[in-house]
Design a protein around this nucleic acid. Sequence first.
DNA 1: TATGAATGAGGCTTCATTCAT
DNA 2: GATGAATGAAGCCTCATTCAT
Lengths: 199, 199, 199, 199
Amino acid sequence: MALEKLDTGIRREQIVEAALGLIAAHGVGRISVAALARRVGIVPSALYRHFKNKEEILQAAVQLVRRRVGENLKEVCEATPNALERLDQLLRRVMKMVRELQAMPRIVFSEGMSSGHPERKAQAYAMLKEILGEIENIMRQGQARGEIRSDLDARALAVMFWGMVPAAVILWHMSDGRFDVTRQAERTWELYKEGIRAR
Amino acid sequence: MALEKLDTGIRREQIVEAALGLIAAHGVGRISVAALARRVGIVPSALYRHFKNKEEILQAAVQLVRRRVGENLKEVCEATPNALERLDQLLRRVMKMVRELQAMPRIVFSEGMSSGHPERKAQAYAMLKEILGEIENIMRQGQARGEIRSDLDARALAVMFWGMVPAAVILWHMSDGRFDVTRQAERTWELYKEGIRAR
Amino acid sequence: MALEKLDTGIRREQIVEAALGLIAAHGVGRISVAALARRVGIVPSALYRHFKNKEEILQAAVQLVRRRVGENLKEVCEATPNALERLDQLLRRVMKMVRELQAMPRIVFSEGMSSGHPERKAQAYAMLKEILGEIENIMRQGQARGEIRSDLDARALAVMFWGMVPAAVILWHMSDGRFDVTRQAERTWELYKEGIRAR
Amino acid sequence: MALEKLDTGIRREQIVEAALGLIAAHGVGRISVAALARRVGIVPSALYRHFKNKEEILQAAVQLVRRRVGENLKEVCEATPNALERLDQLLRRVMKMVRELQAMPRIVFSEGMSSGHPERKAQAYAMLKEILGEIENIMRQGQARGEIRSDLDARALAVMFWGMVPAAVILWHMSDGRFDVTRQAERTWELYKEGIRAR
DNA sequence: TATGAATGAGGCTTCATTCAT
DNA sequence: GATGAATGAAGCCTCATTCAT
């Protein structure tokens, strides 16, 4: 069935990518090594040449998401020094990612909560803290630059900003895409932006 | 083990209650009919006299949560006519519920997203829309009563308000309770309240 | 496939019996739960109603052998007070058992040696010590009754006596039954008996 | 990992040697070609250039043991013409081998019994017969030289003598070395020697 | 109404072996 | 001669569900 024998580096990528796809489509809990292997085009046991076990694959998937989100954050910060613009872009990108890489929220939601896989949970939490930290930085710099009201708590602002994402994602998923997330996000973001903009 | 043969009405309640407990403790995906039966004090096969299958039990659990949330909303509205106070109380109650009845977020997050159980998903979405609708109503009445800025979109306000809950819950779960949700929620709520209060 | 639903007590016996049969036929290491279930006439997963896992079944098998050997020893002692006669009968019985219940030597040999299953090994060793102890007792009583030379070490006599069994069994198995174990055992026993008989 | 490409003759030896080591350490049944290859310092598939399959490797291991035991027997016979001394030395050597080369008893015990590998079994049985034959010769010569009682059956004596070995080995393995085999063997041997010594 | 034995599908993993490079 | 990816069979176990009692 396998078209060719691929280098383990490439296969690992393929496998993780496939895992993300499956997570996005069916949720973390519903991944089976059989389905995963089928998607990659190899036989289940072949997975074990590239990963120690299923758990290792899932952790690699979490890592990948983490890396991608990190890259997004960095790129946003490099694009503009203006805090409000940064946040604006960030939200846009994340919203786009959510659709492209639905695995992310699924991992954060399903797995961050599920007991029984402490390592995965720890990784997901680390990712989250990282993100919140970065957003908080943006807020703080925005306050320093006089773009954001200084009387507000940067941490709370960060959490609130980030909170728009899960809310939107939940609505989008639960409505099977019928809920217009982008529009909603834009409105919410307008509201939020006006609330924090320095006067 | 079963002390007595109970009326199916009572048993159904017991079972759903037990299901909620298990969901809260271990997540929806990790429920097994064996564990559920053990918790009720009967044998797994006995469950099938009261429910057609596991799925039906889970749906009943969703229903129950839905009813409870609805009751909360109603009580809040009866307690005070002031919109900001209503929201304040609502947030407080929900935050309390989150801890008491962790099943709710677990259902909304893990299962609302999982494909493969369209009925449950539909139910969860219905519940969510109901809640958002009620909050929107509160907003609208608040605007009518001059308590909330009328230049803001009631729907967006509602979504944003509700969005504080999943954000808090995620943080709480992922941090294993180390993240001080209540304090964070209060701060965020302050921020939010000031933003929407009519001038 | 299952002709009837049997009480777990009976099933447990059947399963252990089947396990002993398989061990006898193919060795401990070659038992598979599939083969075991097939032999009992049920489906593999049905085994798990009666035993926690495969290991528990094997341990039960060891226990059963242990019990049977113990019974043999007791019956022999009750049959006659004369030590030489006791030993004579014991050897005869054991030789008979070896053929009927080949599982015993297989468990003792294969599993007593295999690392990786400490509990089973411990059980087998306990059984062995018990047997050696009983034989030593017989020796000691024989010496007290003036039937066995008192200048010989009872323990060494016991070990040597018992040693005839594994030797015979190995020869028998390896020769696929072509080696006439019974005759050989008799001759060896004659030799042994003359050597220890009090003058 | 493989330092060099070695001649197949040398590799074969290495592999068999490694197999013996693994058998000694973990038993025949627990050898895996992966572990074997690792021990040799090559990759599993590389084994197949030197042996047709795992079974062939195990047979080669049996052969090697057979050769070594044969050498021991010959050396003993060359060292002294006295039958009792020969037996004495032989026992000592074997006991030493048992510890050094635990693979031997493991092969004889576990694998001589296991059905499913008739060739290996046949080989092991051939080895055993050879050994018994040699011991019988020693007995017969001893009787001819007036060192061993002539009224005893040489064959039975040989089997009984050899029988001390498996007995000791079993006790040693099952007790995890706690059982003092050497001392036990010495005592048994004393007993035996006095029993057969010509008067 | 409750029990408990049985089922069958599915899940993860190990392992000997093959084959292209 | 050696590598490493891939295979397929086999192994153990879990779980939702059915059914006779």
